[in-house]
Design a binder for these strands. Structure first.
Lengths: 110, 110
DNA sequence: CGGCGTTATATAGAATATCTATATTGGACT
DNA sequence: AGTCCAATATAGATATTCTATATAACGCCG
């Protein structure tokens, strides 16, 4: 049986979204789908978390949204990582690395 | 200069506390001090986070507190990991490993 | 002895982020 | 037209950490 999806650690969603948009511009639902695929279902970002987060990131100037027509003819809001967003992503990657390192130090300490 | 302390990701404090008590019984302030030392100051658990968390963990039956006299003659509440606490610690270790794995998958994906 | 600083614990209230549940829109398909 | 689904939106609930403040008890020092 597949492992159940995990609750996101509060504070990690920005990193997941920014990192996904680093690859290419994408609309909200596609971001969520890709996160689920790459993590083999471990992270399933809920719509009620995703869209407010996208609005927040856009407010911060880290992503830029634009209404488009998807291939299937749907109205979607496509998001692009901005220059500031790349900078922020770098910061969050470093922070994440420090968190993992510190936590592992604790888990492995004698 | 030393790196600044990190904000804790919400949801990780239980793991840090339970893991620390796995080594030996300890009182609250000693737990915080050890976490800070082992992580080289990356995690500095605030008193306002620590003590409510200890109460919560005791409510859950994962740790057991007992008033004692410390060597310095201070009144401290010493906490011991219970059997259920060990089980919970194992669960949280696995969850943490899955979170790290999933996040790394995302960060390293092409 | 009395004041002062320090350690240990406690707790209320603020801030923040995610989740649940519900709503709206527009297109496709019958 | 009616139904279904994908995509986006948002209000309210929940949970956890942080800030700020408080109390108690001990040691130190003038």
């Amino acid at each position: 049986m597949p492992e159940p999806a995990l609750e996101l650690l509060k504070g990690t969603l920005d990193l997941l979204i920014l990192r996904t948009l680093e690859l290419r511009p994408m609309h909200g639902s596609a971001i969520a789908e890709r996160i689920s695929q790459v993590t083999h279902g471990a992270f399933q970002v809920k719509a009620g978390s995703l869209f407010p987060a996208l609005h927040r990131l856009e407010q911060e100037g880290w992503i830029e949204g634009e209404w488009r027509e998807s291939k299937e003819g749907r109205r979607v809001r496509s998001y692009t990582l901005t220059r500031d967003g790349r900078r922020q992503l770098a910061v969050e990657k470093k922070t994440w690395a420090r968190i993992v390192q510190a936590t592992n130090a604790l888990l492995e300490s004698a």
